[in-house]
Each structure stands twice: as C-alpha cells, then as structure tokens.
Amino acid sequence: MFVHRRDVQIQWGDCDPANIVYYPRYFAMFDDSTSIMFEAACFSKQDIINNYGLVGIPMVDTRAKFYIPSTHGDWITIETRVESIKRSSFEVTHKVFKGEALAIEAFETRVLVGRDPNDPSKLKSAPFPQEIIDRFMKG
C-alpha cells in the first residue's frame, strides 16, 4: 500500500480560544494530505483532470476519532493511505501522530468524478484508471 507522511506545524489560526486545534482545521489538513498523497504518487490534480478527463475527487463521507489535542506550535505527522479502491470510490485513512503517540484517526470515502457525457452540466462518477490503482495498491 502507498503511504504518504508529512509533518505539519500547528499555526495560531488553527487554534480555538482554548489554544487547541479547532477540529474543522484538521479536516482541511486531511483534504490537503489526500491531494499531496496523489501528487507524491505522481498524479497531481492537473494530471488527473488533463489525462483522465476527471473533474476531481470529492469527499462523500468522513469521520474522525480524536485522542490527543494539539496546540499552537506543536509539530504533528499526518500519515495518509488509500485503504481500498472500488470502481469509482476509494477509502482513505489519515493517522495523526504527536511524536510516537497516535493523536487522531480519520476516515474518508471519496469518489472520482467527471462530466456526465449525456449532460455535461452534471457530474458523474468515473471508474478508476488502472495505473492509479496499481500505484496505490502496490506502493
């Protein structure tokens, strides 16, 4: 399985008045981490749009478990991986570590979408290109 890790320093604007990360900020970090993972696997958003005729990879479901809070100035590591791929959807997990400790587990379901050939004003799920499947499932 392809795994991408990145280090992130918590910024002042990420925190609420109690100086802990306001939870929606993590979901923005996870969205960035998914995009960065695709880029690290050599499939930037522009590549996906231009080479496969897709519009994007929107999130259709998400949830998270929070174990340890982070505060301004902390460094965290976000580990992102594709857990499974179906015809057009895929499951992503994000694990956030503070040092060696697991701080957060997050789960996403995303879908590849393109323009509906019968009505280009609408979006339609699109099948996963085999080379993307191969890259994510073989690492």
Rank of each mutant, 00 (worst) to 15 (best):
E105M: 06
P69T: 13
G73P: 02
P69F: 02
D61A: 15
C42A: 14
K98L: 10
G99P: 10
A126D: 02
S88W: 00
I20T: 07
V92R: 01
G99L: 01
G73S: 00
I68E: 06
A126G: 07
R63V: 00
G56C: 06
K122N: 10
S121F: 00
I78Y: 03
N50P: 04
I36A: 15
V92W: 04
G114W: 00
P69L: 07
F90I: 11
C15Y: 03
S88G: 15
S44M: 07
D14M: 00
R6M: 12
T34A: 11
R5C: 11
V3H: 01
K86H: 15
I76F: 03
A18D: 03
S33F: 04
A106W: 04
V8C: 10
H4G: 06
G13T: 10
I36L: 15
G53Q: 01
I76Q: 01
E39L: 03
V8P: 09
G73M: 04
T62H: 09
I20S: 07
S70G: 12
I78S: 07
F107M: 08
F2V: 02
I85A: 08
R110S: 01
Q130V: 14
Y52C: 01
R87E: 14
A40M: 14
F107C: 06
G53Y: 00
I104K: 06
A103L: 08
I104E: 06
F66I: 01
P58K: 02
A126V: 01
V96H: 01
S44R: 07
L112R: 10
P117G: 07
D14F: 07
V3W: 00
W75A: 02
Y22H: 08
K122G: 08
D61H: 14
I68P: 00
D7I: 13
A41N: 10
L102N: 04
Q9P: 11
G73V: 03
C42F: 08
Y22K: 05
Y23D: 03
D31P: 03
G56M: 08
Q11H: 14
V21L: 07
T109C: 12
P127H: 11
E131C: 09
E108T: 13
A126W: 04
I85D: 07
P117T: 00
K45C: 15
I57N: 00
G53K: 00
F2W: 08
D119W: 00
T80Q: 13
V96N: 03
Y22V: 08
A103V: 08
L102V: 07
T80D: 14
I68Y: 06
R5W: 05
G114L: 04
K86N: 13
F128K: 05
P127T: 08
F107G: 05
F66E: 05
M29R: 02
C15A: 13
I49M: 14
L112C: 15
F43A: 07
N50E: 06
L54Q: 03
A41E: 09
I48V: 11
S44N: 15
L112M: 15
S70T: 09
P69S: 11
N50R: 09
W75S: 06
S35N: 14
T80E: 09
A18F: 09
E131Y: 10
H72F: 02
R87K: 15
T109M: 14
Q9A: 13
D74L: 13
G73A: 07
S88N: 10
S33L: 06
G13A: 14
I36S: 14
V60G: 04
Y52Q: 05
F90G: 03
R115T: 01
M37A: 15
I85K: 02
F107S: 08
R6A: 09
G53M: 00
P129Y: 06
